[in-house]
Computed example of a mutant assay.
Amino acid sequence: MDGTLDHVMLRVGDLEESLDWYQTHLEYEEKDRHEGDGFTIVYLGPEEMGEDEAMLELTHNEGEDVELGDAWGHIAVRVPEGELEDHYEQLMEEGVEDYRDPESCGGRYAFVTDPDGHEVEIVQRDPEQGGTWSLDHTMIRVEDADDALGFWTRKFEYEHTGRWESDSFANYFMKPEDAGEEAMAVELTYNYDGRSYEFGDAWGHLCVRMDDLEDDWDQLMTREAEDYRDPESNDNMYAFTKDQDGHEIELLERDPDADSLFPF
C-alpha cells in the first residue's frame, strides 16, 4: 500500500467563515468541492503542493454545530526555520486569537485556534520538508502507547520517525517508511496518568492513500484491522477502518488523472 497521509478532515460550524480564515491567514486555496445532500466538503491547501503533501478537508453539515472533544489534539503547519516569531506576529496583526505564543512555548513552536476552536500548531521546519503553512502533522491522543505504535506499524507499515518525552507525557511521530520529507506525519500523544478521552464530532478522520483499495483493504483485514465501512458498502470508492482507540481512518485510492479529487 502507498500509506501516505492524504488529508485530515475537520468539521466546521460555518463553512464560509472557516474558508475565509484558512484562505486569509494560511494562504490556502480551494482545491476541490463536493456539494452533497445537506453537507459540503472542501479540500484546501497551499497553492504549491508537493506530491506527498497532505490536504485539509473541511466538512460542513447544514444546521449542525460542532462539538470539540479531546481525543484529537491539533493540526500543525510549517514555517521556515527562524521565522516563527515573524509569522506569529503577522497572524496577531491579522486578528487571529493569541492562544499560545512562541515565548510561552520556549521559542520552538506556537499555537493559534481557528473559528471553531480547532488548535493549529505552528512548527519550524527546513524548507525541504515542505512549504510555508503546509501540513506537518496531525496529533491524536491515545490511551495505550504500545497498542497505538503497534497499530500503525503492523497495519500500515509506518515507522517511528521521532519521539519527545516529558515527565507526564510522550509524543511519537509516525510515517510510512518511504514517505517524502514533506509528507504529513501522525503524532501519537500518550499521557502517563491513564486518562481517557471524549471524541466529540469536530474532528472527523485521517485519510491514508492506497495503491489498490480492494487489495489493500483485504491486506488490512488479514492484519485484523477493524472492518468499519468496507469498500463495497461505499460503492468501492473508499473505505473506513478505526484504530485501537476508535479514531476513524479513511482509505482512498487516488487517481492523479481524475477530473475531481473526489471519488464520487
Rank of each mutant, 00 (worst) to 15 (best):
E64V: 05
E35G: 02
L56K: 04
D98H: 04
D20F: 14
L56A: 08
Y99P: 15
L26H: 01
M55V: 05
A76R: 03
L15N: 01
L19V: 03
I41E: 13
H87M: 08
E85G: 13
E64C: 06
M49P: 04
Y88A: 00
V79D: 05
H25Y: 00
Q23F: 11
Y99Q: 13
Q90C: 01
L19T: 02
M92V: 10
E47C: 05
A71I: 02
Y99V: 10
D14V: 03
G63V: 06
E85M: 15
I75M: 12
L68V: 07
R100W: 15
L91R: 03
G45Q: 03
I41R: 15
H34R: 04
G82I: 10
L58M: 11
R100T: 12
N61A: 09
L26R: 00
L10W: 09
L68Q: 10
V42Y: 02
A76P: 12
G45T: 05
Y28E: 03
M9D: 08
R78S: 06
E51G: 07
A71S: 10
E30D: 11
D86P: 07
R100K: 15
D52S: 14
Y28R: 00
Y28N: 01
D65L: 11
H87S: 09
G45W: 07
W72A: 03
T24S: 06
T24K: 07
Y28F: 14
L91C: 06
I41V: 12
G63E: 09
Q23L: 09
E29I: 13
G69H: 15
G36R: 02
H25S: 00
Y88R: 00
A76E: 03
E67M: 13
E29W: 09
L91D: 05
M55I: 04
